[in-house]
Design a protein around this nucleic acid. Structure first.
Lengths: 229, 229
DNA sequence: GTTCTGCATCTACCATACAAGATTGCGGAA
DNA sequence: TTCCGCAATCTTGTATGGTAGATGCAGAAC
């Protein structure tokens, strides 16, 4: 399967300069290599990547639409500061959708579900035991994405992926902090409820799991006030 | 209050040519003045609006990112056909969020809620009595948006607004069909449950209300098969 | 010492020119 | 008549120059 990059809007696996710039910049922003408030310019980035201003400009437009850049006409373009309210509402959206997903999953009967989820949790334990927090983060994301796929709404997950970038920036600031063991226990609780076909318990477990991000956000705002509005 | 257009990504109420083109094209697409499958080109639209290719190109990029256009490099740009699966998943997202909204609204106590909602339903009845289906559509949208605002997540509503455009295209194909009286009755049922502080009843009423779109979609696919993938 | 003015310099926006791939249609050969 | 190949002509992608507006600082006026 050819991996269509998330920057691809053509449908065919082309690759333009503009798309490369989009992905490079997005990666820099989400990983905090470019910090909120940083001022950049078309010429600046164009020179850095050895292309003209035109593809850079298009990349700026797309990243601005995703809420990562703020284009101030005739003035400058800056890496958007993180909006606590925006993060809060992105969490609301994510919780709404994930709760619906988990309820559907717990209500239906598919005998391949338990095996898939058990295998994922097993991998998470391996990563946790190895202290590989980067791999755990990827597996954590894959866990939630798999829930969406099993519920038949993987496309919906792709749609909220854009908004999740705001959460990812916060998450990246707190990488070492995350207690993987606790997250795994919560994952297990969710899966158990699904396997018992208990929608109410699954919903409660999912809400509790997602609620942990709230304290992380407040802590992060205290630690990095300059990165927030 | 100065109305910041939804195409504005600058934060300040500027207005560039590219933004004007975005709004004009989006309006044409959502109202089906431009039909799914229609082939357009940058030069074509540029000539039509008396601007150069550059702003048009930027507009294309933004509309492609919103799923309304499909840019096929070196080939052409077409008005994207409606994906039944995409519509289904957009409905899933909307239902997830609106259910969460209505449950929160029914759980909390704010004495200004009943008055606001009653007033809105009153306006809907006026529009329905006058046979003004366009105004009713606007009021219907305002009703749901107001629910989000009262629940404190109006920003979240703006985020799903993008995905709602897919639903709006279907809706526009069935404008005369919609039975406003029935919709109003369902709105009233939702509001009653909220006023009684009965989250379960409110959720059920909201799901029933949104479920009506499903039969409309299937009917529309039969009536306009060329507009769908 | 303080405030204001004007210019140098930055920005993003737009227009234009060129490049390269994709499509179409026509003409010739089998 | 059918099929193949080439060329004219589409398309979008990229580069570059010019323009108007915003900014910051230097120097004059008070």
């Amino acid at each position: 399967m050819t991996e269509a990059t998330s920057a691809d809007i053509t449908g065919s696996g082309e690759e333009t300069m503009a798309m490369r710039v989009v992905e490079a910049l997005r990666d820099d922003i989400v990983t905090m290599a470019m910090k909120p408030g940083d001022v950049i310019s078309e010429s600046d980035i164009a020179g850095r990547y050895g292309v003209s201003r035109q593809p850079v400009r298009e990349a700026f437009i797309r990243l601005a639409q995703q809420g990562l850049l703020l284009i101030r006409p005739k003035r400058a373009t800056v890496v958007k500061k993180i909006s606590p309210e925006g993060v809060r509402q992105s969490r609301f959206i994510r919780e709404s959708i994930e709760v619906e997903i988990i309820r559907r999953l717990a209500s239906q009967t598919r005998n391949d579900v338990p095996g898939v989820l058990a295998a994922l949790i097993g991998e998470q334990e391996e990563a946790s035991a190895a202290g590989d927090s980067r791999r755990f983060h990827i597996l954590d994301e894959l866990f939630h994405r798999t829930l969406a796929r099993l519920a038949g709404v993987e496309y919906a997950w792709q749609l909220i992926d854009d908004h999740k970038m705001q959460l990812d920036r916060v998450r990246y600031l707190t990488l070492g902090v995350s207690s993987a063991q606790r997250a795994i226990a919560e994952h297990r609780e969710i899966v158990d409820a699904v396997n018992r076909h208990d929608p109410a318990a699954a919903e409660a477990a999912m809400r509790a799991h997602l609620a942990r991000a709230e304290v992380l956000l407040n802590q992060t705002i205290r630690d990095f006030p300059d990165y927030f509005e």
